[in-house]
Design a protein around this nucleic acid. Structure first.
Length: 385
DNA sequence: AACCAGGATGAGC
DNA sequence: GCTCATCCTGGTT
């Protein structure tokens, strides 16, 4: 059997029923791939005889933009393509099965692992296949997804479908399953560093956004329409795929994909209710972080907590004094104010204004001063820890 | 000088 | 109506 040099994009399966894609024609191992069934699209591990490096190569012929022609514009409104890379090997648990009932993943034929990762994307894969995909959760109706924490829902789900419930149903994110975000994100962040844009979009100014979009356009050899926008990252996140397509044309899908990646790497995700790995948020409901028409906002207290909890070390400007009690100290008021200003696209932000906003929280019971008031030391109130 | 408290006002959602 | 951003007066460290 010939090796299959192919990367599947699961989401396309539903929208591109009759589309045939071919891999590199100069490669004798390639074959035409009818996009009418996932089984046809996804190579079995047993089919693969090439070295892994070979499989991880990009395939320009599978360019999103070539696929999103007018013929599929209807589908485009419903789905965002997110993944073109073939994942590196990952440990797929052998006794865990989760059925996903989503429009593009017929439940009867496709057993997949799934989880909602920190960026709010639903992860799909199958232990027998090399390829995987992720879909921004809100692109799939919540009723189409299994609530992984709801035993009753799972039972009735399988019952309705007349299927045997898998032995274990696990949230793949709890298994440390990082594909495809981690590898793609790291690559993206390196590229960002090269073009002088901060790795964390939280720190982006509108100029950084413009630069990034311009770079995507160059990379994809598409017209640069970034001059049309003077947007913050948060504003960009509030746009759906259709908005992005309208605003940025053929670069829209790429921008959309990278937004999802960046959200999962930054602490941005922590500010989005329902997807953050934080007790204050209810992770379970599969709700949209960037749903249609929903404007993304961040509150100051969330931002401060985000800095405090961020994997990126901000301890030189803000740090916990007593994490359990929620007591923190602003070590560098200027820097914190600058970061907040960047985040809100308020270049004139300073600590005087920031602290005024913090003081508004006293009445609301979100943040308070510590019992023995100390300069630059505040405390999150109960319920906001 | 930097920080703190809180009133007033208006923008933006 | 809510959350800030901004500006302000006046007090404290």
């Amino acid at each position: 059997m010939p090796s299959v040099d192919f990367t599947v994009i699961g989401q396309f399966e539903a929208m591109a029923k009759d589309l045939e894609l071919t891999t590199d024609s100069s490669n004798p191992c390639t074959r035409r791939v009818p996009m009418n069934s996932m089984d046809d699209c996804m190579p079995l591990k047993s089919d693969i005889k090439e070295e892994p490096d070979f499989l991880y190569q990009n395939h320009p012929e599978l360019d999103f933009n070539n696929i999103f022609n007018e013929q599929y514009s209807d589908s485009f409104q419903k789905l965002i393509p997110t993944t073109v890379a073939t994942p590196p090997p990952y440990p797929a648990p052998s006794n865990t099965e989760v059925l996903v009932h989503a429009p593009q993943y017929p439940p009867v034929t496709h057993r997949t692992f799934t989880g909602v990762n920190a960026s709010g994307c639903t992860m799909f894969s199958h232990p027998d296949y090399l390829s995987g995909a992720s879909v921004p959760t809100g692109m799939v109706e919540s009723r189409d997804l299994l609530d992984l924490d709801n035993q009753n829902q799972q039972d009735s789900f399988y019952e309705e479908l007349g299927l045997t419930k898998p032995r274990n149903v696990l949230d793949a994110s709890a298994l440390g399953w990082e594909f495809p975000f981690q590898c793609m994100l790291e690559q993206l962040q390196e590229e960002l560093s090269r073009i002088g844009v901060p790795r964390d979009p939280m720190e982006w100014t509108t100029e950084h956004v413009r630069k990034w979009i311009s770079w995507i356009c160059t990379k994809n050899k598409k017209a640069d329409s970034s001059s049309n926008g003077n947007m913050s990252f948060a504003e960009l996140c509030s746009l759906n795929s259709n908005d992005l397509f309208r605003r940025f044309g053929e670069s829209g899908p790429s921008i959309s994909m990278e937004i999802e990646l960046l959200k999962s790497g930054s602490s941005y995700a922590k500010n989005v209710p329902n997807i953050a790995n934080n007790d204050n948020y209810n992770r379970t409901p599969v709700k949209m972080p960037s749903g249609r028409g929903h404007k993304q906002t961040i509150h100051l207290w969330q931002f401060l907590k985000e800095l405090l909890l961020s994997k990126e070390n901000h301890s030189d400007c803000i740090r916990w004094l007593d994490r359990k009690a929620g007591i923190f100290k602003i070590e560098d008021s200027k820097t914190v104010a600058k970061l907040w200003g960047n985040r809100k696209n308020r270049p004139a932000m300073n600590y005087d204004k920031l602290s005024r906003s913090v003081r508004q929280y006293y009445k609301k019971g979100i943040i308070k001063k510590t019992e023995q008031s100390k300069r630059l030391v505040y405390q999150f109130c109960n319920g906001y820890l």
